[in-house]
Design a protein around this nucleic acid. Structure first.
Lengths: 201, 201
DNA sequence: GTCTATAATTAGATAGAC
DNA sequence: GTCTATCTAATTATAGAC
């Protein structure tokens, strides 16, 4: 994890920003692994090798720290953008591939953090809903343009949530240890079906 | 389910069993609403109108209370049994209908309780995985009999988890306020596709 | 059976020395 | 900027009176 050793910059920067970054990285890791409620500020501080008081010094409250950890404005959009570049007839595969590939890289992603925290933390629930709506649902619905676009986009949300919970949180087999290609092969058509499937009813 | 009465009869023998039942009902309600970690014994006691100490008197520990709340052996199987009575070609609809109808009745069902608690509580995670495997995956896989039966059954699990999280925990629209029939119409074919869909790869 | 009192632990947060 | 020390509040859990 967080191999953020300071740059050997000449003159070496007075450590402040470095500690802050380490705290943030560690927070992402622990929040992603145990959720908001089950992660203590003390645990974060210990894992980051700093004093608990410093966490509050930099971030004010636990809630603010979580907000900072979840906010990856700029880091996520590019990945999601790739979903929308390409034909509508293969978008199912691209959604699944992008989702799984990004989440596999680390559990520190906002989606996992929020999905783990949402069930017991009202604020996380709101954040997650907004995140999904803004980054996925709205764009998908706009892309489709059909009358039932909203319902279809929501069905994709169900796939994303189900897949995230099954693979990264509950680790249900054989979903958890399947390869990216296997998942794309299985869930790609399923997501495609949600969007461009049969009768618009 | 269980409408605790509180008989207005003055002088009624204070039945221990009644208090115990009230505690259990209240525990199911709160665990289902906030998950294991975010539900305190005190809150349960207060909502049940008894003393916190009594909760421990009856159930020993918080964990044991949760175990008792989650254990509905005998109450769930019958509902699930109805899924497996009927043709394989319409099982998708039956799965969705049975799931949604039962969960709509109350949030105190084991599935919702466990799904809400699993992300932050390791024991709940195990319980949920075992519950799903035993009650659904194993039976579905056995019913199919195909070589990829396990994967297909797991795909159904993803649907169930996704649907449960979206409708009952995160309350994503328009999934949350959709009618049972709408959901059956939308997700029935999807689940059916998981099980008896295209090429067995 | 029910409740009071309390032990033991742990959480988030703050003040102030250095 | 960093840490020691501490405050306050909440939690699970137990002992024992009635």
């Amino acid at each position: 994890m967080a191999e953020h050793d300071t740059p050997g910059r000449p003159g070496r920067w007075r450590s402040g920003a470095e500690s802050k970054q380490r705290i943030l990285d560690t927070a992402r890791e622990l929040f992603g692994e145990h959720g908001y409620g089950a992660t203590t500020v003390r645990a974060i501080a210990k894992a980051a090798g700093v004093d608990p008081a410093m966490v509050f010094y930099f971030f004010g409250t636990k809630q603010d720290l979580f907000g900072a950890a979840v906010d990856m404005s700029g880091a996520v959009p590019p990945a999601i953008a790739s979903i929308f570049t390409g034909g509508l007839d293969t978008i199912g595969e691209r959604i699944v591939r992008t989702l799984v590939e990004n989440l596999d890289k680390s559990g520190r992603t906002p989606l996992v953090m929020l999905t783990r925290s949402a069930p017991t933390d009202a604020r996380s629930e709101t954040l997650l809903r907004e995140f999904i709506d803004r980054e996925i649902t709205d764009r998908l619905a706009a892309l489709l343009g059909t009358p039932d676009a909203t319902v279809r986009a929501a069905m994709v949300n169900v796939q994303i949530l189900g897949l995230t919970v099954a693979r990264y949180i509950m680790r249900i087999e054989p979903i958890a240890s399947a390869s990216v290609d296997e998942l794309v092969e299985r869930f790609g058509p399923l997501v495609q079906y949600c969007l461009t499937g049969p009768p618009a009813a």
